[in-house]
């Protein structure tokens, strides 16, 4: 820990999240294989989730679940913000649904074309 000085934990999560967003966007923009583009989308998605979680973090906070260790009386000063966590839960589920639909489009294209390279599907370009 001393090596990193006073680097905050949520800073690490935030930077990794932003990095994942960039990697995912790079994948979507440069890859020609549909599956790789979908993987890029998933990375982008995960990066956004990490950014959202890191924004909700409160220094020294724990999970917003009341129990013996986090009693109701002191909970306000000890837990992280529950709202971003709830939003991320929603975002994960929707990302999953979108990925499933994208994958089934990929299956359809593969079945019709026997290929996953978008360079081969040119008639609907532009």
């Amino acid at each position: 820990m001393s090596f990193f000085g006073d680097l905050q934990i949520s800073m690490i999560v935030l930077c990794s999240g932003l990095g994942l967003v960039l990697i995912g966007l790079w994948g979507i923009l440069t890859q020609r294989n549909l599956i790789r583009m979908i993987i890029g989308f998933s990375l982008l998605d995960t990066g956004i989730h990490m950014v959202m979680v890191s924004i909700g973090y409160v220094t020294g906070g724990t999970a917003p679940i009341i129990n013996d260790d986090v009693p109701m009386a002191t909970a306000v000063s000890r837990v992280v913000d529950p709202v971003p966590s709830a939003l991320v839960l929603t975002a994960i589920v929707i990302g999953l649904g979108v990925t499933a639909v994208m994958l089934s489009f990929a299956v359809r294209i593969f079945r019709a074309r026997r290929t996953l390279m978008i360079d081969e599907c040119t008639e609907s370009k532009w």
Partner: peptide
């Protein structure tokens, strides 16, 4: 964005209401 980011030290008003 990351350079200007600093960790929250207390809950936001909405989060505070929900937790309380």
């Amino acid at each position: 964005l990351a350079a200007s980011y600093s960790e929250q030290t207390s809950l936001s008003a909405l989060g505070h209401y929900y937790v309380e």
